[in-house]
Amino acid sequence: MSGVRMSQQHDDAPRPVEPKKPTEPSKYAQSGGLFGTFLASSSDWKTERPGMTESVGVSALSYLLSGPVVFALIGYGLDRWLHTGFLVPIGLLAGMALSIYLIWFRYGAE
């Protein structure tokens, strides 16, 4: 795909020298920019990994969505196969529990 080639080809492009001290916020960033106040907290979001509260929230939401849906679907498939009727709600609940457990395990432990 063109997108992948793009990222590889960019290796050959003249690469600018990176800022000498990556730990310090670069001078460029200190200029603030048009959204200076809007983005000001972006440097504070650096928690354990450079994943920030926003993306953690979004990821958590993703898990909460996928868990019940996936396991409800699995339950639905099993119901069709085994001619039962109780596996959809069980899947739903199990998926939700699994999602919450995973979110707690990934993000809540710290």
Binding site: G3, S7, Y28, A29, F35, S55
Partner: peptide, 27 residues
């Protein structure tokens, strides 16, 4: 640059890391 700097430094560099972020700045 007022738009570029926050994307380059505030998003790409902070999240992807100083080592490799430049590749993904155009995207």
């Amino acid at each position: 640059e007022q738009v570029y700097a926050p994307i380059r430094n505030g998003i790409a560099q902070d999240i992807i890391g100083t080592k490799e972020f430049l590749k993904y700045v155009p995207l």
